[in-house]
Design a protein around this nucleic acid. Structure first.
Lengths: 191, 191
DNA sequence: GCAAGAAATGAATGATGGTTCAATCCTTTG
DNA sequence: CAAAGGATTGAACCATCATTCATTTCTTGC
């Protein structure tokens, strides 16, 4: 019984991520999520006090998946420059492969309460990068800088450069390569 | 009179910008805008077919003001590096001086139709920067790069680095200086 | 002044979609 | 197997605003 409860809660979250990926936040009415999860509309409220709480969890969950992917990619590298490159390639690659979801997570208008969770998602990426940058500064690979500020700026540059391609459906031929050059230069990676 | 019509249309737009600056987009109900402009709710619809059209104009107008300010600041400089610095300082300075308005223009959740106008605003900043960057590349001040991509990334970095301070109300002591260093490096300005 | 028409009014309307809840269905347990 | 208690249902409810429109108030031309 407890397992049944947990399972249906997870089905609801998964259904919401699915609709987010197919139709964006605009398509995510509570009724639509419930239908896709195979439960009644009202049942959603047995698991979440309000829609905002559901989508806070949805954004947390989908965001964590992205964070895990870039963390894994970066872990395979050993210099700050290579780690940052891995983050950019993974982030952009996944975004371009699931453009609707990426747009929803990054930029689509959402309820203010959900927007807060989006900031958490962006800050998590920034925090990850800040660690790599701080390490790079500490062992002399990168010049002195404020890792929090530069990592935030990197996340902004990445997100902004993705929004155009995500909307139009196609990225320029060397968007990712150009971003890597731009960000490496910005961090002071020696050429 | 015709002048009276135009005047009241402008009062409505100005009132909307005022509410945007005081209470954000969330406070911008048609009734609130009309009240502040000193007209009846229904009168707004004599000037704009729908709320989205009003706010398209509001974002266009407020955005143009920002574009004008950074354009003017950049025009006083003669190298690409100095122009970009002037853009960053002006953009950040104005944002920090009107944080609620800046947040609304940059990041606050808005109706999808208004979001489109926000993209126009961001793209206008990027286009301005792209021109300076292209000039810098052309006369050898900057290394070869794709000005559209790098200017977009710069706008993203700027906006993202501002959102935190705009929400919390205070910028770190050297946020602007750090951003200038970051962006100059990213563009390949010789040190 | 005075019609005739334009403009302004603001309360009523309507659409959307989140939230509730009385009725129903299961699962559990003695 | 029966009763109790919780889970599920989904149609009704309600709050929020954008939008409309019958009515009133100005402007204008004669």
């Amino acid at each position: 019984m407890k397992a049944r409860l947990t399972a249906s809660r997870e089905r609801i979250v998964a259904a919401a991520i699915g609709i987010l990926a197919d139709h964006g936040y605009a398509g995510c009415s509570v009724a639509a999520v419930a239908a896709r999860a195979g439960v009644a509309t009202g049942s959603v409220y047995r698991h979440f006090p309000a829609k905002a709480d559901l989508f806070a969890e949805v954004f947390r969950s989908a965001g964590q998946r992205e964070i895990d992917a870039v963390t894994r990619a970066a872990a395979a590298e050993s210099t700050a420059a290579a780690r940052v490159r891995a983050v950019i390639e993974t982030f952009a690659g996944r975004a371009l492969r699931s453009p609707r979801l990426a747009y929803a997570l990054l930029a689509e208008p959402v309820d203010p309460a959900v927007e807060a969770q989006r900031l958490v998602f962006r800050r998590a990426h920034a925090a990850l990068l800040a660690g790599y940058i701080a390490d790079g500064v500490a062992d002399g690979e990168l010049p002195a800088q404020n890792p929090e500020l530069t990592s935030t700026a990197v996340v902004g540059a990445l997100a902004e450069a993705m929004v155009g391609p995500l909307a139009s459906g196609v990225a320029g031929p060397d968007t990712v390569g150009g971003l890597i050059t731009f960000i490496h230069r910005a961090l002071g990676v020696p050429s």
